[in-house]
Amino acid sequence: MSESNSATWLAHVYVTLKTVVNDPQGLAIADGLHTMGYGGVEDVRAGKYLQVRLRAASAEEAQRLAEEMSDRLLANTVIENYRCVIEPAS
């Protein structure tokens, strides 16, 4: 898939549970924060953050690939949403 003129990109992939999905982990974390005294905490949702280094010809192509990977593997779109942010890899 890599091309000679391609560059390396870093995709930041944020995977979060859909709002209709119950998140017992987030509720337990919120409980913990309340116990610690953070009474202002209204809600916690636990998710995943992934970094994918990939080669692609352009930022647009890297974005497309990261979203395709998210659709197919990184997120389960039955229960999760995802967001991909692309930057040139250092």
């Binding site: 119950n22 017992p24 982990q25 337990a28 389960n76 039955v78 229960i79």
Partner: peptide, 17 residues
């Protein structure tokens, strides 16, 4: 099989963790 979309839905962490 749910991940493969051969069955509907998904299985989440148990409610009581």
């Amino acid at each position: 099989l749910t991940e493969a979309q051969l069955l509907p839905g998904s299985l989440l962490r148990n409610a009581e963790l």
